[in-house]
Design a protein around this nucleic acid. Structure first.
Lengths: 110, 110
DNA sequence: CTGGATTATGTCATATTAGACATAAGGCGA
DNA sequence: TCGCCTTATGTCTAATATGACATAATCCAG
Protein backbone atom coordinates (compact mmCIF):
# COMPACT_ATOMS: atom_id res chain seq x y z
CA UNK A 1 0.00 0.00 0.00
CA UNK A 2 2.66 2.45 -1.03
CA UNK A 3 4.77 2.04 1.99
CA UNK A 4 8.18 3.22 0.96
CA UNK A 5 7.18 6.84 0.72
CA UNK A 6 5.49 6.96 4.02
CA UNK A 7 8.23 4.99 5.55
CA UNK A 8 10.95 7.29 4.46
CA UNK A 9 8.92 10.18 5.66
CA UNK A 10 7.97 9.03 9.07
CA UNK A 11 11.30 7.44 9.59
CA UNK A 12 13.56 10.29 8.99
CA UNK A 13 12.66 12.67 11.70
CA UNK A 14 9.03 13.50 11.62
CA UNK A 15 7.69 15.47 14.47
CA UNK A 16 4.55 13.96 15.81
CA UNK A 17 2.36 16.82 14.74
CA UNK A 18 2.80 16.66 11.04
CA UNK A 19 3.02 13.33 9.34
CA UNK A 20 1.02 15.22 6.86
CA UNK A 21 -1.04 14.88 3.83
CA UNK A 22 1.08 16.05 0.99
CA UNK A 23 2.37 12.99 -0.74
CA UNK A 24 0.38 9.88 -1.23
CA UNK A 25 -1.09 10.01 2.21
CA UNK A 26 -4.80 10.25 2.34
CA UNK A 27 -6.18 12.18 5.22
CA UNK A 28 -7.04 9.01 7.11
CA UNK A 29 -3.68 7.50 6.52
CA UNK A 30 -2.09 10.62 7.88
CA UNK A 31 -4.25 10.48 10.95
CA UNK A 32 -3.49 6.84 11.36
CA UNK A 33 0.23 7.43 11.25
CA UNK A 34 0.05 10.25 13.72
CA UNK A 35 -1.95 8.12 16.05
CA UNK A 36 0.59 5.37 15.81
CA UNK A 37 3.45 7.74 16.43
CA UNK A 38 1.73 9.14 19.46
CA UNK A 39 1.35 5.71 20.96
CA UNK A 40 4.89 4.79 20.05
CA UNK A 41 6.13 7.86 21.85
CA UNK A 42 4.05 6.81 24.80
CA UNK A 43 5.86 3.53 24.96
CA UNK A 44 9.24 5.14 25.05
CA UNK A 45 8.16 7.58 27.65
CA UNK A 46 6.72 4.91 29.91
CA UNK A 47 9.64 2.59 29.39
CA UNK A 48 12.13 5.25 30.35
CA UNK A 49 10.05 6.29 33.28
CA UNK A 50 10.38 2.74 34.55
CA UNK A 51 14.10 2.84 33.96
CA UNK A 52 13.89 -0.06 31.59
CA UNK A 53 16.11 -0.70 28.64
CA UNK A 54 14.68 -1.76 25.31
CA UNK A 55 16.15 -5.17 25.87
CA UNK A 56 14.41 -5.47 29.21
CA UNK A 57 11.08 -4.49 27.77
CA UNK A 58 11.64 -6.87 24.90
CA UNK A 59 12.11 -9.73 27.29
CA UNK A 60 9.02 -8.75 29.21
CA UNK A 61 7.15 -8.83 25.94
CA UNK A 62 8.72 -12.01 24.71
CA UNK A 63 10.10 -10.05 21.84
CA UNK A 64 13.44 -8.67 20.80
CA UNK A 65 15.29 -5.44 21.31
CA UNK A 66 15.24 -4.69 17.63
CA UNK A 67 11.51 -4.92 17.48
CA UNK A 68 11.12 -2.64 20.43
CA UNK A 69 13.36 -0.12 18.73
CA UNK A 70 11.28 -0.28 15.59
CA UNK A 71 8.19 0.01 17.65
CA UNK A 72 9.30 3.14 19.39
CA UNK A 73 10.40 4.55 16.08
CA UNK A 74 6.89 4.03 14.84
CA UNK A 75 8.25 2.06 11.93
CA UNK A 76 5.52 0.96 9.62
CA UNK A 77 6.70 -2.58 9.93
CA UNK A 78 5.10 -2.77 13.32
CA UNK A 79 1.42 -3.06 13.94
CA UNK A 80 -0.78 -1.14 16.25
CA UNK A 81 -1.55 -4.43 17.92
CA UNK A 82 2.00 -4.83 19.07
CA UNK A 83 2.23 -1.25 20.19
CA UNK A 84 -0.95 -1.36 22.19
CA UNK A 85 -0.10 -4.70 23.71
CA UNK A 86 3.21 -3.27 24.77
CA UNK A 87 1.61 -0.28 26.34
CA UNK A 88 -0.67 -2.52 28.33
CA UNK A 89 2.26 -4.64 29.35
CA UNK A 90 4.25 -1.77 30.79
CA UNK A 91 1.26 -0.79 32.78
CA UNK A 92 -0.70 1.71 30.78
CA UNK A 93 -4.42 1.29 31.20
CA UNK A 94 -7.06 2.09 28.62
CA UNK A 95 -7.45 5.58 29.99
CA UNK A 96 -3.77 6.27 29.46
CA UNK A 97 -4.01 5.03 25.93
CA UNK A 98 -7.02 7.16 25.29
CA UNK A 99 -5.08 10.12 26.53
CA UNK A 100 -2.20 9.42 24.20
CA UNK A 101 -4.58 9.22 21.30
CA UNK A 102 -6.22 12.45 22.19
CA UNK A 103 -2.79 13.97 22.24
CA UNK A 104 -2.32 12.81 18.68
CA UNK A 105 -5.23 14.77 17.37
CA UNK A 106 -4.77 18.45 16.77
CA UNK A 107 -1.22 19.00 17.59
CA UNK A 108 -2.36 20.12 14.21
CA UNK A 109 -3.94 23.33 15.35
CA UNK A 110 -0.51 24.75 16.06
CA UNK B 1 -0.25 -17.72 21.23
CA UNK B 2 -3.08 -19.96 22.37
CA UNK B 3 -5.68 -18.55 20.13
CA UNK B 4 -8.32 -21.18 19.95
CA UNK B 5 -9.42 -20.74 23.51
CA UNK B 6 -9.71 -17.03 23.35
CA UNK B 7 -11.29 -17.27 20.00
CA UNK B 8 -13.99 -19.56 21.07
CA UNK B 9 -14.63 -17.37 24.01
CA UNK B 10 -14.82 -14.03 22.38
CA UNK B 11 -16.60 -15.43 19.42
CA UNK B 12 -19.48 -17.09 21.00
CA UNK B 13 -21.29 -14.30 22.62
CA UNK B 14 -19.09 -12.36 24.92
CA UNK B 15 -20.46 -9.22 26.35
CA UNK B 16 -18.02 -6.39 26.09
CA UNK B 17 -17.48 -6.06 29.78
CA UNK B 18 -16.06 -9.41 30.58
CA UNK B 19 -13.65 -11.00 28.22
CA UNK B 20 -12.12 -12.00 31.46
CA UNK B 21 -9.10 -13.46 32.98
CA UNK B 22 -9.96 -16.97 33.90
CA UNK B 23 -8.54 -19.17 31.25
CA UNK B 24 -5.23 -18.53 29.66
CA UNK B 25 -5.82 -14.85 29.38
CA UNK B 26 -3.35 -12.73 31.19
CA UNK B 27 -4.64 -9.50 32.55
CA UNK B 28 -3.14 -7.53 29.69
CA UNK B 29 -4.51 -9.87 27.11
CA UNK B 30 -7.94 -9.50 28.61
CA UNK B 31 -7.64 -5.75 28.52
CA UNK B 32 -6.45 -5.90 24.98
CA UNK B 33 -9.39 -7.97 23.88
CA UNK B 34 -11.85 -5.71 25.60
CA UNK B 35 -10.31 -2.74 23.96
CA UNK B 36 -10.57 -4.37 20.60
CA UNK B 37 -14.17 -5.31 21.14
CA UNK B 38 -15.02 -1.80 22.16
CA UNK B 39 -13.55 -0.41 18.98
CA UNK B 40 -15.23 -3.08 16.90
CA UNK B 41 -18.55 -2.15 18.41
CA UNK B 42 -17.78 1.44 17.55
CA UNK B 43 -17.41 0.53 13.93
CA UNK B 44 -20.74 -1.15 13.75
CA UNK B 45 -22.41 1.71 15.49
CA UNK B 46 -20.93 4.30 13.19
CA UNK B 47 -21.56 2.29 10.10
CA UNK B 48 -25.20 1.83 10.93
CA UNK B 49 -25.54 5.46 11.81
CA UNK B 50 -24.40 6.26 8.31
CA UNK B 51 -26.86 3.79 6.91
CA UNK B 52 -24.10 1.82 5.31
CA UNK B 53 -24.09 -1.87 4.66
CA UNK B 54 -21.06 -3.99 5.44
CA UNK B 55 -20.53 -4.40 1.73
CA UNK B 56 -20.53 -0.66 1.23
CA UNK B 57 -18.04 -0.09 3.98
CA UNK B 58 -15.94 -2.89 2.59
CA UNK B 59 -15.75 -1.21 -0.75
CA UNK B 60 -14.88 2.08 0.85
CA UNK B 61 -12.07 0.30 2.63
CA UNK B 62 -10.94 -1.69 -0.36
CA UNK B 63 -11.78 -4.80 1.58
CA UNK B 64 -14.52 -7.39 1.55
CA UNK B 65 -17.81 -7.84 3.30
CA UNK B 66 -16.60 -10.92 5.07
CA UNK B 67 -13.72 -9.08 6.57
CA UNK B 68 -15.92 -6.29 7.76
CA UNK B 69 -18.16 -8.83 9.41
CA UNK B 70 -15.20 -10.39 11.17
CA UNK B 71 -14.01 -7.00 12.15
CA UNK B 72 -17.27 -6.05 13.78
CA UNK B 73 -17.38 -9.39 15.48
CA UNK B 74 -14.02 -8.58 17.00
CA UNK B 75 -12.67 -11.81 15.62
CA UNK B 76 -9.10 -12.32 16.64
CA UNK B 77 -8.17 -12.79 13.04
CA UNK B 78 -8.39 -9.07 12.53
CA UNK B 79 -5.85 -6.59 13.69
CA UNK B 80 -6.30 -3.41 15.58
CA UNK B 81 -4.72 -1.70 12.61
CA UNK B 82 -7.59 -2.62 10.36
CA UNK B 83 -10.14 -1.71 12.95
CA UNK B 84 -8.67 1.67 13.64
CA UNK B 85 -8.15 2.41 9.99
CA UNK B 86 -11.77 1.59 9.41
CA UNK B 87 -12.89 3.85 12.17
CA UNK B 88 -10.94 6.68 10.68
CA UNK B 89 -12.35 5.93 7.28
CA UNK B 90 -15.95 6.17 8.39
CA UNK B 91 -15.19 9.49 9.94
CA UNK B 92 -14.24 8.89 13.51
CA UNK B 93 -11.52 11.20 14.68
CA UNK B 94 -8.91 10.44 17.34
CA UNK B 95 -11.10 11.91 20.03
CA UNK B 96 -13.88 9.52 19.14
CA UNK B 97 -11.50 6.63 19.26
CA UNK B 98 -10.20 7.74 22.58
CA UNK B 99 -13.71 7.84 23.86
CA UNK B 100 -14.40 4.31 22.70
CA UNK B 101 -11.30 3.12 24.46
CA UNK B 102 -12.22 4.82 27.65
CA UNK B 103 -15.53 3.07 27.40
CA UNK B 104 -13.69 -0.21 27.27
CA UNK B 105 -12.06 0.20 30.63
CA UNK B 106 -14.06 -0.65 33.70
CA UNK B 107 -17.34 -1.68 32.35
CA UNK B 108 -15.71 -4.01 34.78
CA UNK B 109 -16.78 -2.20 37.90
CA UNK B 110 -20.33 -3.39 37.35
C1' DC C 1 -44.18 -18.70 3.36
C1' DT C 2 -41.05 -16.69 -0.38
C1' DG C 3 -37.60 -13.97 -2.04
C1' DG C 4 -34.18 -10.40 -1.88
C1' DA C 5 -30.94 -8.22 0.84
C1' DT C 6 -27.83 -8.22 4.58
C1' DT C 7 -24.73 -10.39 7.67
C1' DA C 8 -22.03 -14.67 9.42
C1' DT C 9 -18.60 -18.27 8.80
C1' DG C 10 -15.13 -21.00 6.61
C1' DT C 11 -11.33 -21.61 3.50
C1' DC C 12 -7.98 -20.54 0.31
C1' DA C 13 -3.39 -18.04 -1.83
C1' DT C 14 -0.82 -14.10 -1.19
C1' DA C 15 1.02 -10.43 1.43
C1' DT C 16 2.67 -8.60 5.66
C1' DT C 17 4.51 -8.90 10.33
C1' DA C 18 6.72 -11.53 13.84
C1' DG C 19 10.99 -12.67 16.60
C1' DA C 20 15.86 -13.67 15.91
C1' DC C 21 20.33 -12.49 14.74
C1' DA C 22 24.10 -9.66 13.10
C1' DT C 23 26.03 -5.44 13.17
C1' DA C 24 26.33 -0.44 13.02
C1' DA C 25 25.82 3.84 15.46
C1' DG C 26 25.46 6.65 19.52
C1' DG C 27 26.38 8.06 24.11
C1' DC C 28 29.37 8.33 28.17
C1' DG C 29 32.46 7.49 31.98
C1' DA C 30 37.42 6.39 32.95
C1' DT D 1 40.97 7.54 23.16
C1' DC D 2 38.98 3.01 24.63
C1' DG D 3 35.42 -0.02 26.23
C1' DC D 4 30.89 -0.75 27.61
C1' DC D 5 26.06 -0.20 27.34
C1' DT D 6 22.15 1.12 24.82
C1' DT D 7 19.67 2.00 20.72
C1' DA D 8 19.19 1.76 15.41
C1' DT D 9 18.91 -0.70 11.09
C1' DG D 10 18.83 -4.47 8.00
C1' DT D 11 17.72 -9.15 6.72
C1' DC D 12 16.39 -13.87 7.25
C1' DT D 13 12.22 -17.65 8.04
C1' DA D 14 8.11 -18.76 10.33
C1' DA D 15 3.83 -17.14 11.74
C1' DT D 16 -0.34 -14.49 10.98
C1' DA D 17 -3.58 -11.35 8.64
C1' DT D 18 -5.38 -10.05 4.30
C1' DG D 19 -8.90 -9.87 0.47
C1' DA D 20 -11.44 -13.07 -2.34
C1' DC D 21 -14.79 -16.31 -2.84
C1' DA D 22 -18.35 -19.60 -1.63
C1' DT D 23 -22.06 -20.45 1.04
C1' DA D 24 -24.88 -20.54 5.14
C1' DA D 25 -27.70 -18.10 8.37
C1' DT D 26 -30.92 -13.96 9.47
C1' DC D 27 -34.07 -10.62 8.68
C1' DC D 28 -38.06 -8.59 6.99
C1' DA D 29 -41.33 -6.76 3.52
C1' DG D 30 -44.99 -8.45 0.74
Amino acid sequence: MNNSKKERLTRSGWAVGEASDFLGLSAEEARFVELKLALAAGIRRLREKRGMTQAALAELLGSSQSRVAKMEAGSNSVTLDLIVRSLLTIGADPADIAKLIKGAESRRAA
